[in-house]
Computed example of a mutant assay.
Amino acid sequence: MPRSGADARRRLKQAALELYRERGFDRTTTAQIAARAGVNERTFFRHFPDKREVLFDGEADLRDELMRSVAEAPDGLQPFEILFHAFQKAARILEDNRPYAEPRLDIIAATPALRERELAKNASLTEAVAEALRQRGIADRLAGLAAETGWAAFHHALQAWIDDPALSVYAHLSQAFDDLRALSASALATKESPEVLAKDSSGAAQPSQRS
């Protein structure tokens, strides 16, 4: 495989990851990344527009996979179940690539400029997921809320997986969505309760007064 192709891209990603961990993101240049990868700087810019994008490689593929997975989810599922179906596939991709995924998350967490870029990327992916839900006929306001909530659960699961690799990312994802369902059920039960309790100044539970 020529260095200007897939092999060069892989080498550049690995070199960037090594240098970011050794020197820090801010003190690493594209020239240093290229040199570590054994290519020239022009080759770097053929693959990536800047040194931040090395850590977000594959975003377009992830967006396509999520939208396709939402579209292909079985009929009759509720929005959260559709999202769980879709995020399982994304989780498997990350699990297969853990040696890259784990340090990548650490580098982003330690670098304000990268956290800002990640927020923008996440917003774009969340909107793509919401649009995929809309295309399944889910109301606009529900699609947006489900996508944002589901994406938050997905990231919660990823962080739990990094902190506790003894369990698979699928197990952490399942737990996150179980917790999400439990919270939703609890909120619904509270809303439908005929009597809402409020605490008085002494801390005792009292029925709230309604006009």
Rank of each mutant, 00 (worst) to 15 (best):
residue 108 I to W: 01
residue 52 R to M: 11
residue 187 A to Q: 12
residue 166 A to R: 13
residue 181 R to L: 11
residue 7 D to S: 14
residue 152 A to F: 09
residue 97 N to L: 11
residue 118 E to I: 00
residue 120 A to L: 15
residue 14 Q to H: 09
residue 159 Q to D: 13
residue 137 G to K: 08
residue 102 E to N: 04
residue 40 N to R: 09
residue 139 A to Y: 03
residue 155 H to S: 00
residue 20 Y to R: 01
residue 10 R to T: 14
residue 90 A to V: 11
residue 4 S to H: 10
residue 176 A to R: 02
residue 86 A to L: 05
residue 91 A to T: 10
residue 166 A to Y: 00
residue 99 P to T: 00
residue 130 A to N: 01
residue 62 L to I: 12
residue 107 I to V: 12
residue 181 R to S: 08
residue 74 P to D: 08
residue 10 R to L: 12
residue 16 A to M: 00
residue 70 V to E: 00
residue 3 R to K: 12
residue 137 G to M: 09
residue 147 A to F: 07
residue 98 R to W: 06
residue 101 A to Y: 10
residue 161 W to K: 04
residue 177 F to A: 05
residue 8 A to D: 06
residue 19 L to N: 05
residue 1 M to D: 09
residue 121 K to Q: 10
residue 88 Q to A: 08
residue 203 G to Y: 06
residue 196 V to M: 08
residue 30 T to I: 01
residue 171 A to W: 01
residue 39 V to G: 04
residue 205 A to V: 04
residue 8 A to F: 03
residue 157 A to H: 04
residue 160 A to E: 13
residue 56 F to Q: 05
residue 191 K to L: 14
residue 8 A to W: 03
residue 107 I to G: 07
residue 5 G to M: 05
residue 209 Q to I: 13
residue 19 L to R: 07
residue 118 E to W: 07
residue 42 R to W: 06
residue 35 A to N: 10
residue 179 D to G: 01
residue 189 A to F: 09
residue 5 G to F: 04
residue 147 A to K: 00
residue 84 F to H: 13
residue 47 H to D: 05
residue 45 F to V: 08
residue 156 H to F: 14
residue 159 Q to K: 10
residue 183 L to K: 11
residue 191 K to I: 11
residue 53 E to Y: 09
residue 105 L to Y: 10
residue 70 V to L: 01
residue 161 W to H: 07
residue 104 R to F: 00
residue 92 R to G: 06
residue 205 A to S: 13
residue 108 I to N: 00
residue 67 M to P: 00
residue 195 E to M: 13
residue 185 A to K: 10
residue 147 A to W: 04
residue 160 A to P: 00
residue 158 L to T: 04
residue 77 L to S: 06
residue 92 R to C: 03
residue 179 D to L: 15
residue 183 L to H: 11
residue 191 K to V: 12
residue 84 F to P: 01
residue 126 T to S: 11
residue 58 G to I: 07
residue 141 R to W: 11
residue 72 E to D: 15
residue 96 D to F: 04
residue 139 A to T: 01
residue 25 F to L: 02
residue 96 D to T: 07
residue 190 T to R: 14
residue 33 I to V: 14
residue 189 A to K: 11
residue 28 T to H: 00
residue 181 R to K: 14
residue 55 L to P: 09
residue 99 P to M: 01
residue 141 R to V: 14
residue 180 L to H: 02
residue 184 S to H: 11
residue 119 L to R: 12
residue 142 L to A: 15
residue 209 Q to T: 12
residue 50 D to Q: 05
residue 201 S to F: 11
residue 88 Q to C: 11
residue 9 R to G: 08
residue 156 H to C: 13
residue 83 L to A: 03
residue 158 L to Q: 13
residue 195 E to G: 02
residue 169 V to Q: 15
residue 207 P to W: 05
residue 35 A to I: 02
residue 177 F to K: 06
residue 71 A to Q: 08
residue 155 H to V: 03
residue 60 A to V: 13
residue 63 R to E: 15
residue 43 T to S: 12
residue 82 I to G: 04
residue 64 D to G: 11
residue 14 Q to A: 13
residue 67 M to D: 01
residue 145 L to D: 08
residue 161 W to I: 02
residue 36 R to V: 02
residue 125 L to E: 05
residue 200 D to C: 06
residue 88 Q to V: 09
residue 11 R to G: 02
residue 93 I to R: 15
residue 44 F to N: 02
residue 110 A to V: 00
residue 168 S to R: 08
residue 90 A to W: 06
residue 159 Q to C: 02
residue 102 E to S: 10
residue 156 H to A: 14
residue 125 L to G: 05
residue 181 R to M: 09
residue 12 L to S: 07
residue 79 P to K: 08
residue 16 A to P: 04
residue 129 V to M: 07
residue 37 A to G: 06
